[in-house]
Design a protein around this nucleic acid. Structure first.
Lengths: 192, 192
DNA sequence: GTCTATACACCGATAGAC
DNA sequence: GTCTATCGGTGTATAGAC
């Protein structure tokens, strides 16, 4: 094989880095916290991520990208009726955000200075997600323009529900949004 | 009068602090940046805000609280038909977030360690806003339970639209959400 | 691959002159 | 009320032994 198996401690570290970055943001996830959370000393961290914190965050975004593709985007593109595909997405989204109790990494890294560093990856991830949902709606017979608007609404409601649930210290809004999402996305286009 | 007129430089500083905190978050708004943005030296900042950064952020939240009450909450509670009142809110919200180009201070301070510091004020502000919208809908004949759910949806869509617009680097989603908001809030309750 | 030690910049905050 | 100077602490990152 061209690439040998990566040491598992890096994958493991990336998963813990994801938790830190989305909870504390880029600047708030200090090396001290990272070291404590991963159990790796500073030297070990720089061994796995020679370019330092920026490389850690990049690795997290790549990991999330793979996770999203495997668990959300590909299932969304798979066969099956649109309702089931959307319901599957809802289940995965619920797991990703731990029922509304954890922030979104994309939103977290959109803040402050990290916005400039990761803005491209964030934009691409959001766009891919919108496109995937949009295609499901098109498959259900909704015209492309409306499909895209509804897909944007879905992402936007998920993100907003995370903010509101965090602000109110109550995950009910997030749960409710997820529960309503499939029906709302697939409801007949009303005449204007 | 019991209280003399506050020096205007503090008010002025608070307005600039609002911009900094919502752009960079609490930890990202460093004293160096604050000093540059306000034109005040460190000593002057600590003269106006003896308890330092935390007091600066508290002052910002109090300022936002007053601004919200005057520009959004009170008009929402005023006389007039519900549609007009909501339309007025939309206009003010559009100004507050500069057409979708600026983050929400409540969302910004909900991240990282500042969440613990300001969580109460954030929760109260969100709750007041939800209650005010909810009351407008009740005045329009919508039952209390549905009114509250719709009010939460409104806030959540605004917050999510800000996130999405920032992530996509395109304020169209925010504009669209605001434009649709009054009609969506006031539409007849559909039979289940 | 992990350790200890450390370099250097910046953080929030304070002291004292004016 | 603003200035300069500085404190102790912590930030990211690196060097070199093992």
């Amino acid at each position: 094989m061209a690439t040998k198996k990566q040491s598992s401690s890096r994958e493991e570290a990336v998963r813990k880095l994801l938790l830190l970055f989305r909870q504390y943001g880029y600047e708030g996830a200090t090396l001290t916290r990272i070291s404590e959370a991963t159990g790796l000393g500073r030297a070990s961290l720089y061994h796995h991520f020679p370019k330092g914190k920026e490389e850690m965050a990049t690795a997290v975004l790549e990991y999330v990208d793979r996770w999203m593709a495997e668990n959300i985007l590909n299932p969304l593109k798979a066969d099956g009726n649109p309702g089931d595909r959307l319901q599957n997405m809802v289940t995965k989204v619920n797991a990703l955000y731990e029922s509304g109790g954890r922030p979104c990494i994309l939103a977290a890294l959109s803040m402050g200075d990290s916005h400039d560093l990761f803005y491209r990856q964030i934009q691409t991830a959001l766009q891919s997600w919108i496109d995937a949902i949009s295609q499901v709606l098109i498959d259900d017979g909704i015209d492309a323009a409306n499909a895209r608007l509804r897909a944007e609404n879905a992402i936007l409601q998920i993100q907003g529900a995370l903010i509101l649930s965090r602000g109110l210290n109550n995950t009910a809004p997030f749960q409710r949004v997820l529960q309503q999402l499939p029906d709302e996305l697939l409801q007949p286009v009303r005449a204007s």
